[in-house]
Design a protein around this nucleic acid. Structure first.
Lengths: 108, 108
DNA sequence: TTCCTTTATCGTTGATCTGCGATAGGCGAT
DNA sequence: ATCGCCTATCGCAGATCAACGATAAAGGAA
């Protein structure tokens, strides 16, 4: 099947994509998890309901400041949220945003 | 519900994430769609089965060289593939990779 | 062969990411 | 009030991305 056969390959009318703001939101969410450390953090939080920053640092081979930066990125994307608990900060996932991401990807 | 109540918030045993190579592959796929132009290209190709590079360029407000760069990135990620058709090149979705991406995201 | 079309690649510029150490701020404990 | 712990932020360095114009490569047509 090196040559295409049934599906008409190339020409139809030019579709003219409207600048859907969805694409930007989509790309932003995808970018939030487009780094191995952030994927790890997401999986860690999903598996544990909640976790203090210090423990996340212990689980990653990165400096505390770097982990804090990744947490900030994830928080800005809305995928996670942090709650102050005394001197510590408890991070947990935002189920709504996560569901939104899943829906967007599944809708591809 | 400012104070947590039922869910124990913070401390359990430290999980010690193993350096799963999955995270890297995941991040790579996510990064491929972490740009509005690439999301647009993906949606365009999904909606049309196949499309020549020139038409994709016409659909995006970007220079030809820039679009070609994005196509290269998507091709390297495996999400799309290009087939030479005379002087033109026909791009289409790689369903397997797309499914892999969906599975990874859904499995979060 | 010589053109013309189509696409990939090169080189450059500016912006952004990533990582770290050092430092500042907040909070509880003493 | 002071100390110590936890986290965020600030600078800095190096690397990578994003966008463009210009150019090269490949194939069909005349």
């Amino acid at each position: 099947m090196s040559k295409q056969s049934t599906k008409k390959p190339c020409d139809s009318m030019p579709v003219k994509l409207n600048a859907d703001p969805t694409e930007e939101a989509f790309a932003k969410l995808a970018w939030a998890i487009a780094h191995p450390a952030r994927v790890q953090i997401m999986r860690l939080l999903i598996g544990r309901e909640a976790c203090v920053c210090g423990e996340i640092v212990d689980c990653l081979p990165l400096a505390q400041s770097t982990v804090s930066q990744h947490l900030k990125i994830l928080k800005e994307s809305g995928l996670i949220q942090g709650e102050v608990d005394g001197p510590k900060i408890c991070y947990c996932i935002n189920p709504d945003k996560l569901e939104q991401l899943k829906t967007l990807v599944a809708g591809l």
